[in-house]
Design a protein around this nucleic acid. Structure first.
Lengths: 321, 321
DNA sequence: CTGTTAGCGCTTTCAT
DNA sequence: ATGAAAGCGCTAACAG
């Protein structure tokens, strides 16, 4: 273990006082160009880096944020986390990850622990069942993802826009009997809003609605697709990519090839397995970016909680070649 | 912001000195039962929790470990990370996550940053191209996953055993013409070792080898399976689950149904999409557990670097019903 | 058993 | 423009 250098050492080596080193470290004004350069040279040459803990102790903040995902292997959440990580690092925050496994209790437990750790902020991927009152205490240092709650900062996907885009696309392609596979209304965003958007589009295009709301996993898609297929059905909209994958599996097994699938969630897996599915990209990457930015701004009191909605975009068709 | 309490406050509130509080906090002996209880009562009642940074400053360690995954959406790595997170938290370590994206340069960059941050330890998911000399400086505080390197702690999968299990299973089922899809030998474990194990099994069972080593992704499986199918082929072993998914897609499209697939990597996705595939579980969960344990032990100087191999196990066939 | 006293590495007055 | 000194919250001798 090479003994760690401290600003004291740097001060000695560059023939200045501790405070000057500190000033250089923090890019404060009031240091002559010459001194600054000299100190910087020594720091660089010695590969010096200040102790995080000591700095944290003086300031208020530990510069740590928590990211609570539902599951590590959620493809959509992965895409969001992927973009926020670099942002946090860039701003000097250590992002630590936690899994809620869709359990509200686990969320509460994590929040409790994070509270004790005096963490600076939290990005929480929302899901059905989270008690909003639990989040109240985090008003100023929490950003909710994929869900919104009154008084809390949130980054949401444009559920309505996403479904509308799919429906419009299908309608333009001549489909007049479009079914829907979604999640129960207890799930406000993915469940209720997307279903409502479907119904709205049906009305708008004069399409007879035909929907089932089993949930958002592969298995549900597989198990429940049969229930929404009528002899007239020519297309099926799925609220999530996982539903679509499950549905596709069923269709393959039944050798049903005439059905056009469409789904929200432009993940790499779907694009590979089923490039023929029309997908809408809810903007996972962008959501991650926005969430990180919002949280950082909130921590720095440069921004108060606000609700952000990410615009959905039709994914370009895949050109096989 | 409620002003944070310090041990000083707790000391005052419970009418003892700071050090006594500190002793209680650290479960040190030499405190009368009465005092301890009183202090603990106050701490609990006030919801007190000590400042991490202050403690870190006194001790040597920040209690932070980094987990460098190749990609956030790697299913196998997810399974490993899933089990290590709780262990790290339990031991008071903050696990922070980083993505290497299979770029050796990014790994070096991350290591550089982590060095500056005076992190306690690192779990690194290995891949082809990492320069081992870069890791030399981390001998005592790094655990390599899915790869091994001389002098470094590592947790590896039993490549040989995994393939042998699959081959044995297939042979027992009567297959005599088994092809193989793998990765190039530049990838020492997934590539070279699994291929070698395949060849060994072939020799052992007197099976004519027929292999291609395009890589480990879905697309490669899809693109290269045709090259290893002869009229006699009745089974195909894939070095990874993703290869198998790609291969399956091809088979479906070509309406080839007589081929038995087998693969390493018992991930939920494969089990759902293709329960008919015979899979071996390399022990991702166990690998995560072992890696975390090993790293923690190393940090605490209770263990020197050693190479751990996880035993592979045949996944139970899925009972549909 | 318990309180007092030094610091840990850094930031922040306050002098100079 | 720069240094000296006083802490931040905690732990670790050292006295009682």
């Amino acid at each position: 273990m090479p003994e760690r250098l401290t600003i004291k050492d740097i001060a000695r080596l560059s023939g200045v006082g501790k405070s000057t080193v500190s000033r250089v470290l923090n890019n404060e004004s009031g240091v002559s160009e010459k001194t600054r350069e000299r100190v910087e040279a020594v720091m660089h040459q010695q590969g010096f880096s200040p102790s995080r803990s000591a700095r944290a102790m003086r300031g208020q903040s530990d510069k740590v944020v928590a990211i609570i995902v539902t599951r590590l292997d959620s493809l959509s959440e992965n895409l969001a986390v992927q973009t926020m990580l670099p942002l946090f690092y860039e701003q000097g925050y250590d992002p630590i990850m936690l899994e809620s496994q869709f359990s509200p209790e686990r969320v509460e437990e994590h929040l409790r622990v994070m509270r004790l750790r005096h963490i600076d902020g939290i990005v929480l991927f929302g899901f059905t069942g989270i008690n909003e009152s639990v989040l109240a205490g985090w008003r100023d240092s929490l950003v909710l993802l994929a869900r919104d709650a009154p008084g809390l900062a949130s980054v949401c996907y444009d559920d309505n826009g996403a479904i509308a885009l799919l429906m419009q696309q299908l309608y333009q392609q001549g489909h007049r009997h479009i079914s829907f596979l979604g999640a129960p209304h207890s799930d406000t965003t993915t469940g209720l809003r997307r279903h409502q958007a479907y119904l709205d589009s049906c009305e708008h295009y004069q399409i007879p609605p035909c929907a089932a709301l089993p949930g958002l996993g592969m298995q549900q898609g597989y198990d429940y697709i049969a229930g929404v297929l009528t002899p007239a059905t020519t297309a099926l909209v799925c609220a999530t990519d996982m539903l679509a994958i499950g549905a596709s599996k069923y269709l393959q097994e039944q050798h049903i090839t005439h059905l056009q699938l469409a789904s929200v969630g432009n993940t790499p897996l779907v694009r590979f397995l089923h490039p023929e599915i029309i997908t809408v990209d809810p903007g996972y990457n962008e959501a991650g970016r926005q969430a990180a930015r919002q949280l950082i701004d909130q921590i720095n009191h440069q921004q108060s909680p606000r609700q952000i909605v990410i615009t959905a975009r039709l994914a370009p068709p895949i050109t096989t070649g």
